[in-house]
Design a protein around this nucleic acid. Structure first.
Lengths: 217, 217
DNA sequence: AAGTCATGTGACTAAAAAGTCATATTTTTT
DNA sequence: AAAAAATATGACTTTTTAGTCACATGACTT
C-alpha cells in the first residue's frame, strides 16, 4: 500500500504520478520499468517517490489494483443480471464487457495482460497473494448452473471447459491488443462483435459436421 | 549465427556451453538472463564467449532454433501421415506430440513458451524475422481440407477457429508446465491423454445440450 | 516569533549488466 | 625450430538500475 503522504497529495499531482507510472508499466515489463523514468516524467524527485511508496513493487501492486477495480466495473452489470439470463448470453456479455474494458483502458489492460502472461511466478505470487486469479472458478459455477438448467451438456469436464473459456477470453483481448497496436483506436466494434459471435457459436456447437453419421468405431 | 570458433569447439565443450545457456534462458526471460552467469556455469572466460557468439541475441536465436528443430522432429510423423487420416485424428496426434515434446524437452519448451508469450515485440521480430510463427497457417490448411472432406462444418470461420485451436495447444502446454513445475516428471500420461481427449470432444461437439430444441428465437 | 513536524530534494551508493581489449597461450603452418 | 595464425583470458569500461540519506523548505502549532 502506498504511504499516507501519497494519498494526502493534491489530486493533480497524484494523477500526474499515476499516469507516468501507468505509462511506464504499459510500455515495459515490471523488471524493465524504470523508477527513474517515472519520476522524471512525473517531475518529482527520486527521494519524493520513496516518500510516497515503499518501493517499486508497492507502486506496481497499487496500479494493478486500479486495473482490477476498473475491470470489475465493466463486468458488474452482467454479473448482476446473471440469474435471469441463460449461460451463453452471460458468457457473450462477459466477453463483450471485456472488450469494452480493453478499448477504453488500453494501458491498464496491457499491464494486466503482461502480468498474467509473465513467467515471473515470484512477482505473481506477490501480487495475487494466496487468492490466485480464479476467474475460472467463477466460470465453473456458471457452467454448473448451466448444466442444472439443462443448457449445457452434462458430460463435459467442467474444470477443463472453464480453463478453455478463460483462455479464449485472453485470445480475444490479445487479438484486440494486436490489431490496435500502438493505441490506434478504431470505433469498429463490428469486427470484434462478429468475432465474439462466431466464437460463442463454435463453443456451443463444435466444428464437426452435424446431421450425418460419422461413426467413430 | 554463432561464429565458426564455436562450431569448431570439441563436442563436450559445446554442449557444456549450450547446457549452461539453456539452463539460464529456461529460468529467466531474455532480458534477465545473464551472460556472466552463463560463462561462470560453463566455466569459460567472458572474452571466450564473444569469440563464439556475436552477442546475447546470437546465442538466444541459436537456442531457439535448436528448440524449433527438436519440436519438428516430434511433429514429423503426424505430418507425414496427415493425408491418410481424418482431421480430428491429426489434431489429436499433434496435441499429443506437443505434450511429448514438452515432457522430454522441458527446458527448451519453457524457452519457446516464454518467447511466444513475451511482450518484447522487438525481440520477437528479431527471432522470427519476417516468417511469423504461422503454425496457425498450417492449421488453416488442415481445416480447409477437413471441410472439403466433409468432416468439418463449412460454416465455421477458418481463420478464427485456427487461432482458437492454436491457443488451445498452448493451454495444454501451459497446463503441463504448471503441474510439472520445477521439473518434477511424472510418467502419468493418462491425465494428459484424458485432457486431450476431452478437449477434442469439446471442439468437435461444443458444449450446448443436444437433442432438445433450444429455439434461439 | 519560535519551534515542530511533514514533505521535498538530488547527489550518492552499491550492484549488476553487456560488451571490449590488450595480452597470454595454444595450435597450425612453414 | 621458428613464425604465424587462432583461440583463450579476465580486468576493465560504460551504462543503468533501485534505493538511501543528509539536508532544505514549507506549513502548522504554541
Amino acid at each position: 500500500m502506498p504511504k499516507n503522504t501519497f494519498f494526502n497529495l493534491p489530486e493533480r499531482k497524484k494523477t500526474r504520478i499515476l499516469n507516468a507510472a501507468i505509462d511506464e508499466f504499459s510500455k515495459n515489463s515490471y523488471e524493465k520499468a524504470s523508477i527513474t523514468r517515472i519520476v522524471n516524467t512525473a517531475n518529482i524527485a527520486k527521494g519524493s517517490f520513496y516518500q510516497y511508496f515503499e518501493n517499486k513493487l508497492d507502486l506496481f501492486r497499487h496500479i494493478f489494483m486500479i486495473s482490477a477495480d476498473e475491470k470489475l466495473k465493466y463486468l458488474k452489470p452482467t454479473l448482476d443480471k446473471m440469474e435471469s439470463e441463460d449461460f451463453f448470453t452471460t458468457l457473450r456479455n462477459l466477453y463483450v464487457a471485456g472488450i469494452e474494458f480493453v478499448k477504453e483502458n488500453y494501458k491498464l489492460s496491457q499491464i494486466a495482460d503482461r502480468l498474467i502472461k509473465s513467467n515471473n511466478e515470484n512477482l505473481k505470487n506477490k501480487i495475487f497473494g494466496e487468492t490466485k486469479p480464479k476467474s475460472n472458478h467463477f466460470l465453473k459455477e456458471l457452467l454448473l448452473r448451466g448444466i442444472k438448467r439443462g443448457e449445457i451438456d452434462p458430460s463435459i469436464d467442467v474444470e477443463l471447459v472453464s480453463v478453455m473459456l478463460t483462455n479464449l477470453s485472453f485470445t480475444i483481448t490479445e487479438y484486440y491488443l494486436k490489431t490496435n497496436e500502438k493505441g490506434i483506436v478504431t470505433d469498429d466494434y463490428s469486427d470484434l462483435m462478429e468475432m465474439v459471435e462466431k466464437m460463442i457459436y463454435t463453443i456451443e456447437n463444435g466444428i464437426k459436421i452435424k446431421g450425418e453419421d460419422n461413426n467413430d468405431y
